[in-house]
Design a protein around this nucleic acid. Structure first.
Lengths: 252, 252
DNA sequence: ACACAGGGAGTAACATGTTACTCATGGCGA
DNA sequence: TCGCCATGAGTAACATGTTACTCCCTGTGT
């Protein structure tokens, strides 16, 4: 009896099986966070969200528990739940993990990319440009995610792909309003070019290095923006060096 | 009214708050898998497990959904759920991810270990020896896990720690009956010595290299055991090279 | 003005009810 | 003997009911 925002559902999933209400609720929450309907830090309840979506509490609870697993929301016993936006520490940790996984993935992708793979990558890259031109940040993020996802899939490690996807989820919120503030989408777009070039040329080391530069510069940007006012630059640099630091190569 | 195995619960968690039924159910499932009460591949239902544990279906369902998230169990719509034991592919992927995360962690740990940290590590190492002497495989696994956990915590990345813990979970089952079959606990125990030595000496590169050797040799062992009969050796080697491959260092 | 009990609103966690689906089984026709 | 279909048992997914807890208020005594 609340057809109000029942259309907030997204409806996707693999063929045959219809998506479960839990899955659709997960998408709805993501979307709610993205468009500002769900404010980080605010206290919500499963009750209210459930009838806002027009479903029962069960699938909503299941969905939120899954999101809590990745750190996107946090439950407080008998109080409610909050959307969590990651702090400086968490962001740095996430970047460190992504570096550990995506740099080798880029290397492997360069080793074994076929023509069809290269085309798929370029296609996403072009779609990113279109999004830049249209100023559509949401679309940009989506294609960025897909490009990184394709690279990881090319490397052949489904586990790593899933882990990175979850990590992106936790940071998506920060990235959204952040990037346009301090740097244009265009810069981020351009950072991907060297990665694709290296893959085109089948040069693993160059691909890995380009991916490292990309993740480090974008990550550092996100970190500075997220920590604005809460931490000193010295603090931030110490944090960064501790968790991301220097590659073991050029050490003594 | 089924006090039969109601004592299967474990009851742990941080102070103050009592653990939720969901948490205790997760432990109960883990234990059930470990001791053979829950057989991999067999079809079970939330109904039956719930009253076997003497609780309602809700916390059991929540627990299983969480475990499904890490791939430990899999639901089949309107059929039941199964305990999944990872195949060759998945095992190899997991090893690759662990290498990516734990090798750098060992390097960082060597950089910043304090006296107290070294003592904690040695303590676990000694506990592993006791377990070897007692032939207690369960205790051995626990201390092995703690040692790796301590190393990751030392590196300061809580996210990485959690990820590795989840990955271990998915493989614990394979490891259990496997190791004693093909190699003695003692060998695995000894492999940790070079890691601790390198940390003792504050040598990051040596620590990383030792960790890599350890994970590769133990991982390869697990893989061969798990794939016994299902895959040829050539198959396995191809898989391994694809996902784990060579470090980017000594390439052309 | 201020400390403080206690009552009540609201909640997550847990329990139970309902539905629509999957599949094994057995009977029936060929 | 074999194929086919109806039927029913068993299930996850979803809905709803219950409980014990956490706070926020509000009023009372000082």
């Amino acid at each position: 009896m609340s057809p109000s925002s029942a259309a907030a559902f997204d409806a996707k999933e693999r063929p045959g099986r219809p998506p479960t209400l839990t899955d659709r609720t997960i998408d709805a929450v993501r979307e709610g966070i993205r468009n500002g309907t769900l404010v980080p830090g605010e206290l919500y309840s499963v009750y209210r969200l459930a009838d806002k979506l027009g479903v029962s509490r069960s699938p909503v609870r299941d969905a939120l528990l899954r999101l809590a697993e990745t750190g996107m929301v946090a439950f407080e016993r008998n109080r409610g739940f909050r959307v969590v936006l990651p702090g400086a520490r968490e962001l740095t940790e996430i970047i460190a993990v992504r570096l550990a996984l995506e740099v080798p993935a880029a290397e492997r992708a360069a080793e074994r990319a076929q023509e069809a793979d290269r085309e798929a990558l370029e296609s996403e890259y072009k779609a990113m440009l279109s999004a830049v031109a249209a100023g559509d940040e949401t679309a940009f993020m989506m294609h960025d995610q897909r490009l990184h996802g394709l690279l990881l899939e090319l490397a052949g490690n489904a586990h790593a792909t899933r882990i990175v996807e979850n990590l992106r989820d936790a940071t998506r919120l920060v990235g959204t309003s952040t990037i346009r503030a301090s740097r244009s989408l265009d810069d981020v777009y351009r950072e991907h070019r060297p990665i694709l070039d290296a893959i085109e040329q089948g040069d693993p080391r160059a691909a890995g290095a380009a991916m490292r530069r990309h993740l480090e510069s974008t990550g550092l940007l996100l970190l500075r923006e997220a920590a604005r006012g809460h931490r000193t630059d010295a603090d931030l640099n110490a944090l960064w060096d501790n968790l991301v630091g220097l590659p073991p190569g050029p050490s003594a």
